[in-house]
Simulated assay, not measured.
Amino acid sequence: MAGIDGFGTQFKRGDGAVPEVFTALANVDNIDGPSLSRDTIEVTTHGSPEQWKEYLGGLKDGGEVSIDVNYDPSAHDSLVADLDDKAPRNYKIVFPDGRATTWSFAAVMTGFSSSAPHDDKLSASLTFQMSGKPTIS
């Protein structure tokens, strides 16, 4: 197989209850991320071979997840509360790969930007900063 069609991927938001229930966000048309990265720690010394810098792996960062939606105020304005909340909330990205591979993570919403052009659909972009280690299942 050459690839997997991304159509049907879901972005889900947890309700914080126990047990937690996740609901798919309506009208998502694009999901970017997570954008995992790792810092490096330079450990170069006067004895480093042939004056080449040397590094160790440092702290890891889950990065950001951003989603674009066909903006519906009645479906999406409740998410502004996530922007007001300092505590991370649980989210999931569920892929349509036959196994329903899922990235689960805690994140803080860091951005909510809507657009209402005169000649196109209402849209919004939402940005989430991951907090801690994501899990893949």
Results as ranks from 00 to 15, higher is better:
residue 80 V to F: 05
residue 22 F to A: 06
residue 26 A to I: 01
residue 20 E to M: 08
residue 7 F to G: 02
residue 27 N to Y: 11
residue 79 L to N: 04
residue 72 D to H: 10
residue 55 Y to H: 04
residue 14 G to Y: 06
residue 42 E to M: 03
residue 9 T to N: 07
residue 9 T to S: 13
residue 25 L to V: 13
residue 80 V to D: 12
residue 59 L to S: 02
residue 11 F to P: 00
residue 30 N to I: 13
residue 49 P to F: 05
residue 18 V to E: 02
residue 4 I to V: 15
residue 2 A to V: 06
residue 2 A to P: 09
residue 2 A to D: 08
residue 13 R to L: 15
residue 75 A to P: 14
residue 65 V to S: 05
residue 63 G to S: 04
residue 64 E to L: 02
residue 6 G to V: 10
residue 80 V to G: 10
residue 70 N to R: 08
residue 55 Y to V: 04
residue 63 G to I: 01
residue 54 E to A: 12
residue 10 Q to Y: 12
residue 24 A to C: 09
residue 36 L to Q: 00
residue 37 S to Q: 02
residue 9 T to F: 13
residue 74 S to Y: 05
residue 3 G to Y: 08
residue 19 P to D: 01
residue 33 G to R: 05
residue 21 V to M: 04
residue 35 S to W: 02
residue 10 Q to D: 09
residue 10 Q to E: 14
residue 25 L to P: 15
residue 41 I to M: 08
residue 64 E to T: 03
residue 57 G to N: 14
residue 57 G to F: 11
residue 6 G to P: 10
residue 10 Q to L: 15
residue 42 E to S: 03
residue 54 E to D: 03
residue 61 D to Q: 06
residue 71 Y to D: 00
residue 8 G to N: 04
residue 64 E to C: 05
residue 20 E to W: 07
residue 56 L to Y: 15
residue 56 L to A: 14
residue 77 D to K: 02
residue 22 F to S: 03
residue 21 V to K: 11
residue 13 R to T: 13
residue 16 G to S: 03
residue 58 G to Q: 08
residue 66 S to D: 13
residue 60 K to T: 11
residue 35 S to N: 10
residue 62 G to P: 05
residue 43 V to W: 11
residue 37 S to K: 00
residue 57 G to I: 14
residue 63 G to E: 06
residue 72 D to G: 12
residue 83 L to S: 01
residue 18 V to G: 05
residue 15 D to V: 00
residue 65 V to C: 03
residue 63 G to K: 05
residue 76 H to L: 01
residue 20 E to V: 00
residue 23 T to S: 15
residue 62 G to Q: 08
residue 48 S to W: 02
residue 11 F to H: 09
residue 83 L to T: 00
residue 35 S to P: 04
residue 32 D to W: 09
residue 29 D to Q: 12
residue 62 G to N: 07
residue 7 F to C: 08
residue 46 H to D: 06
residue 46 H to F: 12
residue 35 S to L: 02
residue 2 A to K: 10
residue 48 S to C: 06
residue 10 Q to H: 13
residue 10 Q to T: 11
residue 43 V to Q: 05
residue 32 D to L: 08
residue 82 D to A: 13
residue 15 D to I: 00
residue 4 I to N: 14
residue 29 D to H: 14
residue 4 I to C: 09
residue 33 G to F: 00
residue 75 A to K: 09
residue 6 G to M: 14
residue 58 G to L: 12
residue 39 D to I: 01
residue 43 V to K: 07
residue 39 D to H: 09
residue 67 I to M: 14
residue 60 K to H: 07
residue 75 A to Q: 12
residue 19 P to G: 00
residue 59 L to Y: 09
residue 72 D to C: 09
residue 78 S to K: 04
residue 74 S to W: 01
residue 75 A to R: 09
residue 53 K to F: 00
residue 78 S to Q: 06
residue 78 S to T: 04
residue 70 N to E: 07
residue 33 G to E: 13
residue 60 K to G: 08
residue 79 L to Y: 13
residue 82 D to Q: 09
residue 46 H to T: 15
residue 3 G to W: 06
residue 19 P to C: 00
residue 69 V to D: 15
residue 55 Y to W: 02
residue 51 Q to N: 05
residue 67 I to G: 15
residue 69 V to F: 08
residue 45 T to Y: 08
residue 39 D to E: 07
residue 80 V to L: 09
residue 59 L to F: 08
residue 82 D to Y: 15
residue 79 L to D: 06
residue 74 S to R: 04
residue 7 F to V: 03
residue 55 Y to L: 02
residue 65 V to H: 04
residue 78 S to G: 10
residue 58 G to P: 14
